Amino acid sequence: MGSCPWSHPPALRKAAKDPTPHGNTGNWVHLAWRERHEACGAKPCPHGKKLMSLWFLIIGVVAVLLWGLFSFPRKSEVTRLIRNKTCGEEAKICMNSWKKLNQNCFFLFHHKSSWLSALENCQNYDGTLAKFNNKIELDTLMNHVKVGSSSYWIGLNKRNLLRMWVWTDGSKYNNLMRIQDHGQCALMYKDGIASIHCEDLNDYICIKASQCP
């Protein structure tokens, strides 16, 4: 009871040995097989359950193998693209009208903003407000600022407990140029560097790392 026999059922064996009076064995065979089918349909055979479980297991294994097969080439392609973007510092360039500043790029934005808003916009370009590390970088920025009559926020500020002049990355200012001290945020203009209230609206200079071509 409870299992589906794989051998011929008794009715089928009887039909094969004891034909009907009219010799119509086919009806008996058909009836016997129908009884067997109905018995299996009413109560699933354990063998059928095992085969179905095995079939789903095979499908799962094939799916995992296919996923691995098609995912590894994409990972390799990403690695290859990253490797192709590696270059020496001297080969790096500035794109989209940004100008070179040593190993960095800078851009003068003519959009009146507070110091914090200017910093946030620079960060949207994967950069920060302008910073100079030596006299050459300072002179390069000053030469571009002197062309116009505008004032530009740079990264210098003393919005800290010690009231020290620092850059946006936290490094201390090396006093390459005297700052006319009137506020907590510094800006650059044609005559030098001054500081005013951070909420005032000015243009600004962003700086970011140069890129491989």
Score class of each variant (00 low, 15 high):
103 Q>H: 13
182 H>V: 01
147 V>G: 10
130 A>M: 09
134 N>T: 08
150 S>N: 14
196 I>C: 08
192 G>T: 01
167 W>A: 01
200 D>A: 13
185 C>L: 06
130 A>F: 07
112 K>P: 02
106 F>N: 04
123 Q>D: 09
156 L>V: 13
140 T>L: 09
188 M>G: 02
208 K>R: 15
116 L>P: 11
190 K>G: 00
155 G>P: 04
153 W>F: 01
153 W>Q: 03
161 L>A: 15
135 K>P: 01
145 V>N: 02
160 N>P: 00
162 L>N: 13
111 H>K: 13
189 Y>Q: 13
169 D>N: 14
178 R>M: 12
204 Y>P: 10
137 E>K: 06
193 I>Y: 05
206 C>M: 04
171 S>Y: 03
206 C>Y: 04
182 H>D: 11
153 W>L: 14
138 L>C: 10
140 T>V: 06
119 L>M: 14
173 Y>F: 12
154 I>N: 06
206 C>W: 09
125 Y>A: 13
130 A>T: 01
204 Y>G: 08
182 H>C: 07
113 S>D: 15
119 L>G: 00
187 L>T: 03
105 C>H: 06
199 E>F: 06
189 Y>V: 05
154 I>H: 00
190 K>E: 10
119 L>Y: 00
207 I>G: 01
144 H>Y: 10
191 D>A: 14
175 N>R: 07
163 R>Q: 15
147 V>N: 08
173 Y>C: 09
104 N>G: 05
153 W>P: 03
173 Y>N: 06
207 I>S: 08
152 Y>E: 01
171 S>E: 12
132 F>G: 05
105 C>K: 10
155 G>I: 07
161 L>Y: 12
151 S>D: 05
196 I>S: 10
152 Y>M: 07
136 I>L: 14
177 M>V: 13
175 N>H: 12
158 K>C: 05
